[in-house]
Design a protein around this nucleic acid. Structure first.
Length: 416
DNA sequence: TCTGGGGTCCTAGGACCC
DNA sequence: TCTGGGGTCCTAGGACCC
């Protein structure tokens, strides 16, 4: 018998990066801690401990600002591998409670707990069990929101912070949302907030004063859906698909901001090559091929441009990626201008297609094998243990049938 | 306060096709 | 020849999230 109401959990880890760092260095406990880089570096705060937050430090704030607000804070570099490892542990625990788990980021997940009463008891009890299990198995705290939809569950986990559980009873949704600032709705950022304010909508409850026509005209279908939510309606595709359907990534990208801006071609080409390699490597790891490649170029004054190129045939080869990215840079860079950031993105991703297999491009296949072997050597001996040809300083050959990626030299299968 | 890095989704215009 | 409408693909930019 299907449930009439859905039971959705939103699990949000408390100060996740900071808490993981504390596990590796207990001396950090109780101190103001800033994760994300050193105090004078170019960069922003990834996470701040509750002690640091008391001084006004928060994530996305420039590190230098954080240092001014809280000079006594300990600044720690981030360790993505550690966070991934703990994220997987938490995921495994949640998967014991329901198969319908969806990680929405490294430290957040939605669980569809509908119909699990017999197994885990009513929602509040189940949430407390989950909370205790996560604490027992990882020594990490989390907050859990319970509601009839993702939106409600997410709002509830915010109310549960830190280290608590908050349950919105079915039927109470509109009452819960009405007094909230519009900014508290996920998806409402600075810009949308301003727009809503200018329309006289400060709180979610203010949506009720306007008709659907008005809202759609000014806010599009998004506004319409949110107004429905504000009324407590559970309809609408916005935000509310099935939980736990994991699809592959839509894009893979890497970018780099220089510590000081540069217009040096060798340095720029080296960066583009490195970013292309990083993207290519992840494509191969995930057995994906990309049809669209995009260059991101940010100048000293922060003006940012993206330039894309779509290929006839998808690729996962470092030098093919580099070749196109390099061309895009070449034809778009204002010669001599100082560059702040470079980025490489692969999109229109697909698993190997039947057509591509059918092509049986032997040279290409060899290159793919060679690169996979290179990846394995790098896994074993480190990133710098092997480089391809002359790397970025060398001239790139023309692309030919024999050498479709324009790679210098012949592929050497990496030795075991 | 001089502003990271990895993503997702949306909009809007132009090309091109029927 | 002054001129429609819809669909799809591609590109660029931007809002937003953690």
């Amino acid at each position: 018998m299907p449930d009439l109401v859905r039971t959705v959990f939103h699990v949000d880890m408390d100060a996740f990066f900071v808490s993981v760092e504390e596990l590796f260095d207990p001396a950090l406990k109780g101190k103001p801690v800033v994760v994300g880089g050193q105090r004078h570096e170019r960069g922003v705060v990834s996470a701040a401990s509750y002690e640091a937050r008391k001084f006004g430090v928060h994530s996305a704030m420039p590190l230098r600002t954080a240092n001014k607000l809280c000079p006594q804070a300990v600044f720690v570099d981030g360790h993505p591998d550690r966070y991934r490892q703990y994220s997987e542990k938490v995921f495994a625990i949640m998967s014991c409670f329901t198969p319908q788990v969806e990680m929405v980021s490294i430290d957040e997940a939605y669980l569809d707990m509908s119909g699990t009463d017999r197994l885990h008891g009513p929602p509040l009890l189940a949430a407390h069990k989950l909370h205790a299990r996560i604490k027992a198995d990882t020594a990490l705290n989390c907050s859990i929101g319970i509601g009839t939809s993702r939106l409600i569950a997410k709002v509830c986990s915010g109310k549960a912070k830190p280290h608590g559980v908050f349950y919105a009873l079915p039927g109470q949704e509109a009452r819960l949302l009405a007094p909230l600032d519009v900014r508290d709705i996920p998806g409402v950022g600075k810009v949308t907030e301003q727009k809503l304010h200018s329309l006289g909508i400060l709180h979610v409850g203010d949506f009720a004063r306007y008709g659907d026509g008005f809202l759609e005209q000014h806010l599009g279908k998004w506004g319409l859906a949110l107004a429905g939510k504000a009324r407590g309606e559970d309809a609408g595709a916005w935000f509310e698909g099935e939980i736990g359907e994991v699809e592959g990534p839509k894009s893979i990208s890497h970018e780099h901001t220089y510590n000081s801006d540069t217009s040096d071609r060798e340095q720029i080409d080296a960066t583009l090559m490195r970013l292309s390699e990083m993207v290519g490597r992840r494509l191969r790891e995930q057995r994906l091929w990309a049809r669209t490649l995009q260059l991101k170029l940010r100048y000293k004054d922060f003006t940012t441009h993206t330039r894309a190129h779509t290929l006839d045939e998808p690729t996962q080869l470092d030098n093919e990626i580099f070749h196109h990215i390099h061309r895009l840079f070449e034809s778009n860079w204002q010669q001599g201008s100082l560059v702040r950031l470079l980025g490489v993105q692969a999109s229109s991703l697909a698993s190997r297609t039947v057509q591509a297999d059918f092509l049986e491009d032997h040279t290409r296949g060899k290159w793919e094998q060679a690169l996979s072997a290179v990846d394995r050597v790098r896994d074993k001996f480190g990133e710098t243990s092997i480089t391809l040809g002359t790397g970025m300083r060398g001239r790139f050959r023309e692309r030919t049938h024999e050498n479709p990626a324009g790679l210098p030299g012949k592929p050497k299968p990496a030795a075991e």
